[in-house]
Design a protein around this nucleic acid. Structure first.
Lengths: 195, 195
DNA sequence: AAAGCTTGTTACCCTCTGGTAACCCCGTAT
DNA sequence: ATACGGGGTTACCAGAGGGTAACAAGCTTT
């Protein structure tokens, strides 16, 4: 079916296709043959580009994580005050979810796989996202709680997204981002006072 | 090693032990032999009590889900106003996490498995928890958004818990619950106004 | 046009593990 | 003592799927 491709192009194609397959069916329910079929190619070709199934999977996680991280941190960096950072941050997150659909499912979908290594990777990505958000939380509470709450905000965005994506709903990410940001920001200010 | 046990007791013991094993290692990394070993018994015994690995796993999810649901809905039901409901709800959630540690990991930990059926079950549990929380959100916004935000709050609690549990931190669930509830409640009120 | 690299395929191996058939042991009732 | 029933074990099967060795088919360069 599919024509011969130069190595680098094939590698890209495999990555593209695998994201979809893994996102839809999860790691364990997806065999390398499935991936190969989806790419219009046979198994050994996959092993010319990736050492193992794990290796391929981790490469996908890494790529997806990078896109998420840069999206959020760019947005936060480009905002003036805390409130704006919150708004921009959440918007960026939901935009990413909207356009990088499969990547979101791969990382955070219900069917995301979690063996030792993948878990570590995903945890790192979540932690980095939280780190980009942490500064929003006032410095006048213990840094320990600060990190915990940041993690909570990430969970908030994640929970909302998973719900919507898995229902197949399409919501304007800007509207949603604004609403969630309003909620989060008010919450954050409350924590300041209580601190 | 382990003595003979009457059927019902053995069944309970298997359930107890499996929660731990599955919670720690995830579904796919845990073989039925592992479970059997942990229970001090051999594989066929497991199949005297459960039809399949799936069956056992789903039974565990169901039990864990029940405990979570009842904990939260009892707490919410026993509170007077919205603010108190929020506080009690989150406290109950974090208490459950603290004492039912393995169950939390089983349902929401990074290593939780997700094949077709488990996914459905877990989604249902999350949805039910969200449902118990939804009334907290003012009726003056679209019910669609209401549900979405409820889902977000569940994600918030989940994110915080996962972070803490997987770090091995032990935090007083009442203190944590209070803090998160403050944040959530302020956030919720903000959404009301914005509506 | 023939050597030689690159891309791809066929056919296979091997392990892991879910699941089961057949058998054993021990307490109890006849 | 013996038959019987429930709890448990040993030994095995079968399928799935990750991974690979050996071979085929194109381009390209000389």
């Amino acid at each position: 079916m599919s024509m011969r491709l130069p190595a680098s192009a094939r590698r890209e194609q495999i990555l593209d296709v695998s994201v979809q397959v893994f996102a839809r069916n999860g790691f364990h329910s997806t065999s390398m043959n499935d991936v190969a079929d989806a790419a219009g190619v046979t198994k050994p070709v996959l092993y010319q580009h990736f050492d193992s199934k794990q290796d391929l999977y981790l490469a996908l996680l890494e790529e997806a994580g990078n896109r998420l991280r840069t999206a959020v941190s760019k947005a936060v960096a480009g905002a003036a005050n805390g409130k704006e950072q919150t708004e921009m941050g959440f918007r960026a997150y939901f935009r990413w979810v909207a356009e990088d659909h499969d990547a979101f499912l791969l990382l955070f979908g219900s069917r995301a796989n979690r063996d030792e290594e993948s878990t570590t990777t995903i945890r790192r990505i979540t932690a980095e996202t939280a780190k980009a958000i942490a500064p929003l939380i006032a410095a006048d509470i213990e840094p320990e709680h600060q990190r915990t709450l940041a993690q909570g905000l990430v969970g908030l965005a994640e929970g909302v997204s998973r719900y919507l994506v898995e229902r197949g709903d399409t919501v304007d990410p800007d509207v949603l981002g604004q609403q969630v940001a309003d909620m989060a920001w008010a919450g954050l200010r409350a924590v300041h006072r209580t601190g």
